[in-house]
Structures are given as structure tokens and as C-alpha cells.
Write a protein that binds this DNA or RNA. Structure first.
Lengths: 196, 196
DNA sequence: TTATAGTTTAACTAAATTGTTAAATCAATT
DNA sequence: AATTGATTTAACAATTTAGTTAAACTATAA
């Protein structure tokens, strides 16, 4: 629905508090009255958007993590998926992080409704990493730590985009090139870090 | 000043839009009238806080980066400094990132006032990395990318704290332990990734 | 043509929030 | 005790925002 798309855009970009119903209406090309006609309140609207965005962030990842792939291939797949996903919606991570730090319970609620099952996905990944460690394919490392490393290297550059642009003196074009380079280099960086 | 400390706390935790003058007053143990008596407006107050926080984030880092240390030692020093800094003020990174994405110009303004000189610090670091590459001490990598990797691995876990806690099913205590483990493991992870 | 669903307009209420002000109060200093 | 500066109280104005409502309008389909 067009209105939800507009709400998604505005909420994601500005966050709940800074987002105005008027902004959303304008973005959707309609007026405030109609907004309230369809979605009773700002809160209801936000809940819908937030749940959707959380799912967008996790579903693809969870799916890849439970695929039967060799560890190194899986790392490559995760990195590529993450960076590609965020490339087309750069505001997504910081939106989720920001709203989540202010009300962490939200995630639990969403996780219960949707069948994301983070526990399952983590369990499988941990086992796979442990096996690779036992077989002396990689240095000792916990699956949890490895996943954090992977996500860090993928997500953080987008979260810190304005800082990076300033510190490294890049324009938007150069920043984009830098990210594309990361898509190639980051998987090998990780693999080099763990392989024996 | 006690009021600024309170403002720092509230702004950092809630962000500009969600922070209320009333919150700050309560946190400082005074009333709204006095807040406006000392700092004319919310905006003025925020500007002061924001500039201070940006400095806190960068000053230590810039100082370490321009110290004459061997590359691997420098990496260890940066990681330790970053993680220690954020451990005592976990809300800092996401606050900076959030406010910066909404008005990226702020950073430029602050950078001009203070003598942070990000360009200088980057130039030195880039040169040091290039030298290590040329001497075949490490695999080919750009200084810019390496710094992003270092910062990612340090900062992201804090930014994503509620997500990580949910996905990996950790309580606050376990999360803390996990971070402390990272302080040891991350530098070696990075060094293993680049060393030949 | 008429009925209907969707949409707009415009006015409104209610609440929250920032900012201001004058007078009262308090605490320390002279 | 009197003065001074800091602080509180309490009321207020101005603005922003969410949310509501009734009436008018529009396009489409029966």
C-alpha cells in the first residue's frame, strides 16, 4: 500500500519522535485526515512499519544462515546479502538500532509474532563454526563472536556514513565505490582472519 | 557543570527530538525555568552537548593514530581505547550516528571549530599502512578500509546491543563478558586478517 | 442518473512542549 | 539585620502536534 510505503520512508529516515504525520501524508500525496482514517494512530502505524522493517532485516539473513553451505561460502553469502540489502535501503540499520535502544522489548514482541526463530539459526551456525574449529580448518573462535564480526564489517560503514565521509573526505560517489570494494574485500578479510 | 552533565545524559540517551527539557531538569535536580535561565534554548543546549560528545569520540582516537607506534601495536591500542571508551558511555556512538545522519553538516561545523584535523590523522595512517604493504608485512589493503574495519569491530556491537542480546539470548552480564572477550580477540582477529 | 466509496477541506479539540515572566523563597556574605 | 545572587513557584503565551469530525466534493460503477 502506498501509504505504508510513505510511512516506512519517513519513519525510517527520521525515527519515531522526529517523524510527523504531516510528513508522511505529504510523502504519500494525501492529507492527514486520510492517514487517520486508515491507520487510527501514529503508534499503530509505527508498529506496522517497525515489524515489517525488522523482518526485512532478518529474514534473508536467517535463511542464508540455515542453508547447507561450507563455512567460507556461507560467510561470502552473508556479506554479499547484507551489503546488497543495505545498499538499497541505507537508513534501515540505524533506524532499527535507534528505536531498539529506546524500547528493547519491541524486538521480543516482534520475534514472537513472526517465526524468525533466532535461537535456531544461531544454534546451527554455532555448531558449524565449532565443527570447523575442531577439524582445525579455522582458528578457535565462537560462532557468536564470528557472526558479530561479520555483521559489524557489513553494517557499521552505513551507520557511520556521515562520519566516514567527513573523516576520509569522500563525496557520495566515492563512498559508494568504497562500499562496493568492501563487498569484495570483506569476505576475504574475514576468511584470512580465521583460516589456518 | 552539573546541568550540562544532565543534558548530556538525556540527549545522548533519547536523542534530540525525544529529549524533553523537563527530563533534563529532573535529571539535574532543578526546574525548567532555571534551564532556560542558563541556556537560552533547547537548541543552544544541544549544540553544546553535541560538540562536546563529538570531541570525546574523536580526540583520543586521533591522538593514538598519530603516535609513532608499529602498525600492529597501534591497532591494539586503537581497539583497546575504543572499547574502553564506549564501555563507560555505551549510548555515545548511536547518538552521534543518529544525529549526524539527520544533519550531516553539523560535523563539518564542529570539525572546523575544534582542531581535530581528521585529514592529517588519516594521511599519516594511510602512509603507515601503505608502507607496511610495500614492505610485504601485510596483505594489500587501503588505510581507509582498514580503519573502517577496526572501528566497525569495536563500535558496532554497542550500536547493535539490543539486537545481539535478543538474537544470541544474552542478559546484560553475559553481554558484558562477551565485550570484554572482544577486547582481547578483536586485535588479533584484525592482525591475523592482514598479516602475511 | 444515482448510489457509493474514497478523498478533501476546514474547522476544531486536546495535549504536549518550549519559552517567558514576576513574585516569592532560600542561603550565604557583608 | 540587610543585601545579594541563586533558585523555585506558578502562572502564562505561543507553538506544534495528534487526533476528530462534519460537510463537501469526485470519480466510478450499478
Amino acid at each position: 500500500m502506498a501509504i505504508l510505503t510513505a510511512a516506512k520512508k519517513v519513519f525510517t529516515h527520521k525515527g519515531y519522535s522526529a517523524a510527523r504525520m504531516e510528513d508522511i501524508a505529504r510523502e504519500a500525496g494525501i492529507n492527514r485526515a486520510l492517514l487517520h482514517y486508515y491507520f487510527r494512530s501514529k503508534d499503530r502505524m509505527f508498529d506496522l512499519v517497525f515489524e515489517q522493517r525488522i523482518r526485512e532485516f532478518f529474514v534473508g539473513l536467517a535463511q542464508i544462515m540455515s542453508r547447507p553451505l561450507p563455512l567460507f561460502d556461507k560467510i561470502r553469502a552473508i556479506v554479499e546479502h547484507d551489503i546488497n540489502m543495505i545498499l538499497v535501503q541505507p537508513d534501515l540499520p540505524i533506524f532499527i538500532m535507534q528505536e531498539l535502544t529506546q524500547s528493547p522489548d519491541r524486538l521480543i514482541a516482534v520475534a514472537k509474532n513472526s517465526g524468525i526463530g533466532p535461537a535456531t539459526m544461531m544454534k546451527a551456525f554455532r555448531a558449524q563454526v565449532k565443527e570447523a574449529v575442531d577439524k582445525k580448518l579455522i582458528r578457535p573462535i565462537e560462532g557468536g563472536q564470528l557472526l558479530i564480526n561479520i555483521m559489524s564489517l557489513c553494517v557499521y560503514p552505513f551507520v557511520a556514513k556521515p562520519m566516514i565521509k567527513a573523516v576520509q573526505d569522500l563525496d557520495d560517489d566515492q563512498f559508494d565505490k568504497m562500499i562496493r570494494k568492501r563487498r569484495q574485500e570483506v569476505p576475504e578479510f574475514i576468511i584470512d582472519a580465521i583460516k589456518l
